[in-house]
């Protein structure tokens, strides 16, 4: 922890508020540059907090951007560039976590909750529709009177209050 703080302080003094991706880094081939930017937006700067290397001013982020561009210029496909980074920094470097055993729960958790809840609601609705038993509850005398008076006055029993 302490080292990170020192590093951050050192970086702040050495390369202060440098911009994220800089003009000197831009590739001459616009198609490659578009790919590089797209990849840069999905790789995590390893010393920052939840920042993509494309947006980060950290030195190591700049080096990683350069590495991405070197791989692209060398003819690597996008998956190959990701593989290159994962081999060095692990899955941590991917802002979009891979779909693997350890992340199934992450990827499928919310859809699973949605599916289970939807099925449960559906079943409950069906059950309710099939069993008419509670549909005719016994009315108390007061309620009976109220029904009578409502019917007499011809009002909708569920008015906008």
């Amino acid at each position: 922890m302490r080292r990170r703080a020192l590093l951050a302080a050192a970086a702040a003094l050495a390369a202060p508020a440098a911009l994220a991706t800089e003009p000197s880094e831009i590739l001459t081939d616009p198609a490659l540059e578009v790919r590089a930017r797209a990849i840069g937006r999905t790789l995590r700067c390893v010393v920052c907090q939840n920042q993509a290397i494309d947006d980060s001013t950290a030195e190591v982020a700049r080096d990683m951007r350069r590495a991405v561009r070197e791989r692209l210029v060398a003819g690597d496909s996008d998956p190959a560039v990701y593989a290159f980074m994962v081999a060095r920094y692990g899955d941590y470097v991917l802002l979009k976590p891979p779909f693997k055993a350890g992340t199934w729960a992450l990827w499928l958790g919310a859809p699973a909750v949605l599916a289970v809840a939807a099925v449960a609601l559906f079943v409950a609705a069906r059950r309710r529709a099939r069993s008419p038993a509670p549909a005719a509850p016994v009315l108390s005398d007061a309620e009976r009177q109220r029904v009578a008076s409502l019917l007499a006055s011809g009002r909708d029993p569920a008015p906008e209050r």
Binding site: L7, V47, V60, R88
Partner: peptide
């Protein structure tokens, strides 16, 4: 000199 080896070694900073 330019941190290229560092990237190859998965470095995040020094030391």
């Amino acid at each position: 000199p330019d941190g290229k080896i560092a990237i190859d070694w998965g470095l995040s900073g020094v030391p």
